[in-house]
């Protein structure tokens, strides 16, 4: 029997920056062809984890293998088959759009003729053909992000790491990127991404993890995670002491978030009936449970530094 090894495998992975432990013993694996998400509040350790996978930041301890190779010993080989969209754009301001890609293709030893062909295709793919000879400074935020994506695809990577690929983009630009990612996934590329857009993660990711304070606090398929952590539905009501009391009595699973109470349930109608009968409440909102509910439940409401 042929066993297919995971594309990325981490076990007890730790990253320490002098005093601070940014990644605190995480274990996960990413299979070939999967779209895998990393969620978590600011400072959770997502970028740090991405940088270790990219072989640019050495791990402090634990095990990390990419393409079955030790990430600390085979950086060049691993990076050859990897595409990276970093959290911060780092396009070369000294070059035009075309020159950026052309210059980057050299780092991957792509022959000039082949490079020109691929650049042409990629500029079409990310819809930047008209901007071919513009300096990168003059591009909009969305265009820059698309160019960074095109650059990450130059070497026909088997694995793409995207650190907040859609940060700061308008809905149109975001949807365009999602489309491209779906297309890439269909063509068999393994995709690892981090994001703060939970709807994005819910729609795109086959599996995901939520990190907080350097640890993975939950892992699984988005739908399954929601079901396990929340249930199928959510009922939101205004926060009043009587209602809290009433809910406590009935043993419901709920959370007080500022001036609203969020009640987690598999049976919203039961809850709403109960609330209107036993707690004499009539203002309620019933909706589907989302990843955002999971996120807020697990990581709390408090703002991170």
């Amino acid at each position: 029997m042929v066993t297919i090894d995971p594309i990325i495998q981490a076990e007890g992975l730790v990253k320490r920056y002098s005093e601070l432990i940014a990644v605190d013993g995480v274990s996960f694996y990413v299979e070939e062809g999967e779209m895998f998400g990393f969620l978590g509040p600011n400072g959770a350790g997502k970028t740090t984890t991405m940088k270790m996978i990219q072989c640019v930041s050495p791990k402090t301890s634990g095990k990390l293998e990419v393409f079955g190779m030790d990430a600390s010993a085979h950086q060049r080989e691993i990076k050859k088959y990897m595409g990276v969209v970093p959290q911060e754009n780092n396009l070369d301001p000294d070059f035009t759009v075309y020159e950026n890609l052309r210059n980057y293709s050299r780092y991957f030893d792509i022959p000039p003729i082949e490079a020109d062909k691929r650049i042409e295709e990629l500029l079409n793919f990310v819809q930047l053909r008209d901007k071919k000879d513009s300096m990168t400074e003059s591009l909009s935020g969305g265009m820059k992000r698309r160019l960074v994506l095109a650059r990450a695809l130059l070497n026909n990577p088997r694995l793409i790491i995207l650190d907040e690929p859609t940060v700061g983009l308008d809905p149109q630009a975001r949807h365009l990127i999602w489309d491209k990612l779906r297309f890439l996934k269909k063509s068999g590329v393994t995709i690892v991404l981090t994001t703060h857009y939970l709807d994005e993660a819910e729609k795109l990711c086959d599996r995901l993890v939520v990190m907080d304070y350097g640890k993975i606090i939950v892992e699984g398929e988005p739908g399954q995670i929601i079901k396990d952590q929340i249930g199928s539905g959510v009922v939101e009501v205004d926060n009043h002491p009587e209602i809290v009391e009433c809910l406590q009595k009935s043993g419901s699973s709920y959370e007080v978030m500022g001036d609203i109470i969020v009640i987690y349930t598999n049976d919203p109608t039961h809850i709403t009936d109960q609330l209107s009968m036993e707690c004499s409440l009539d203002k309620m909102i019933t909706r589907k449970a989302t990843l955002e509910d999971v996120f807020l439940k697990l990581t709390g409401r408090k703002l991170r530094e």
């Binding site: 060049r76 990076k79 050859k80 990897m82 990276v84 780092n90 780092y107 991957f108 030893d109 070497n155």
Partner: peptide, 14 residues
């Protein structure tokens, strides 16, 4: 400022 080094080391260069 330009993060040129960061961009380069995401390729087979170290």
């Amino acid at each position: 400022y330009q993060k040129t080094f960061d961009a380069i080391i995401a390729t087979p260069l170290i």
